[in-house]
Amino acid sequence: MSRKDTVNSLFMRKTEPPAAGASASKSPERVRSGAISAMGTSLQEMSEGARAAARLQEQLSAGHAVIEIDPAMVSDSSVGDRISIEVDPGFEELVSSIGQHGQQVPILVRPVTGRTDWYQIAYGRRRLRAASRLGVKVRAIVRNLSDDELVIAQGKENLDRQDLSFIEKALFALRLEEAGYKRETILSALSTDKADLSRYISIARTLPQSIVQAIGPAPKAGRSRWMALAETMSASGKKIEALIAEPAFLQLPSDERFAKALAVAATPKKKASGGEHWRNAKGQKAARIERIGKTTRISFDERVVPEFAAFLTDKLEALHAEFEELRRDR
Rank of each mutant, 00 (worst) to 15 (best):
S188P: 01
S236R: 14
R199P: 00
I215E: 00
G237E: 14
R205A: 08
P217G: 10
A230H: 09
A221M: 11
D196N: 10
A230S: 14
A195P: 04
E177M: 11
P217K: 08
L187T: 03
A179R: 13
A221I: 12
R199G: 12
D193G: 14
P217A: 10
A218C: 08
I211Q: 00
L197C: 05
Q213A: 11
A235M: 07
L229Q: 05
R199E: 12
S202N: 11
I211F: 04
A235C: 01
A179N: 14
A214P: 01
L187H: 00
L190D: 10
K194Y: 02
M227V: 09
G180Y: 13
V212T: 10
A189T: 09
K194A: 14
A221D: 08
D196K: 09
S188A: 15
S234A: 15
A228G: 08
S236K: 15
Y200D: 06
E178G: 02
K220V: 07
A195T: 12
P208Y: 06
P208T: 08
K194H: 06
Y200Q: 04
S210V: 10
A179S: 15
L187W: 00
S202F: 13
S191V: 08
G222M: 04
A204D: 06
Y200G: 05
A204G: 07
S236C: 05
T206W: 00
M233Y: 03
A230F: 09
T185Q: 05
R223N: 05
A230Q: 07
A214E: 00
A230K: 09
Q213R: 13
A179M: 07
P219K: 01
L187S: 02
D196I: 11
S234H: 15
L229W: 08
S191H: 03
L197Q: 04
R183G: 02
S210G: 05
D196F: 03
A214K: 01
V212C: 02
R205W: 03
I201A: 04
